[in-house]
Amino acid sequence: MQARLSAQWFDGVSAQAQSCELGWQDGTLLMWVPDATEPRRYASRLVVWPERSRHGLRQLLLPDGAVVSLPDSSAWDSWAEAAGIAQPLAARWAMSWRGVALALVLLVATVLAAWRWAIPWGAQELAGWVPESVQISIGERVMRDLEQRGWLLPSELSREARQGIDDAVAQMVRKAYRDTPAPRYQLHIYKAPRWLGPNAFALPSGDIVVTDALVTLLQSDGDSVSSALLGVVAHELGHVRERHGLRLVFEAGAVGVLAGWWIGDYSAVLAGAPALAVQAGYSRGHERDADAHALRVMKDAGIDPRAMLQFFQALKEAVPERDGDATAFGLATHPVDSERMRFFEDGAR
């Protein structure tokens, strides 16, 4: 039995502090209070013990609603240690700087692992679960919305030219997917407002939209369908096949939730900026995957991948302000053109 420790006792009925003495015997807390000869006894597991800290005062919360206040923290700490009252794991951990450093390293590692592997993997799994009917209805809704905004207008290309592109794409898909099933796709050619420029995009439903401007940019020579245009469609087919649209939605959602949880309750603006950068990073990854897909499809269909060099060259001439400084902040959704050109050039060998 160890020495008694004097403390302040609040009985839970009166606000007045009363002096008391604490003792410890076989895992039981003993408390001598004024006007009582016998000590009160509390089983160790029923008492809420204070965690050790440099700042703040220690208190014991007793099961009968009483509170013991300990004005001298260090006296309590050594008394509790002598009694063998253990600190919870989390408290012991936070008390040592080495433990905190380890926790910090593990925390950063967990966040990095989530960013690098867990989130992309989870998004891919989730995208796989979304039924086809939902993907189709998403695609239909987006197409209708774009039409209503006047961003997709009837194409001004000749019916023959459009038919030619349709046929060439169908032929490429037939050749490229001899062994594996081809992704379900539907090619649309639309005239778009000037700001959209030469462009192509794919929706989760398999709808692939190519703008008139892109077609005229790549095949100024007239009727024959350019290999570059087929390459662009092959890239979009890669997006459809890998469900990049849905995956990005899930990835962006996860990043948004995590960033919001990390600092969002302090500042939404602050949480938004890094979230955008990480989302853009995921998007660049998808673009690289789609490029790799395009390279394979082009090779299998007997199209020279170097046609894509012509595409980037033409795009640079048509839209000189492309490839801007946005990459400097890591906010670009696509890798820089030079990197992508090198990819197709190396792939062609």
Partner: peptide, 21 residues
């Protein structure tokens, strides 16, 4: 109010890690 930022930092880091784990 006697809390210190560096001490709360230690509590916070360990809490955050345990929440994730």
């Amino acid at each position: 109010f006697t809390a210190s930022g560096s001490e709360y930092f230690r509590i916070w880091v360990v809490n955050l890690l345990l929440i994730i784990v």
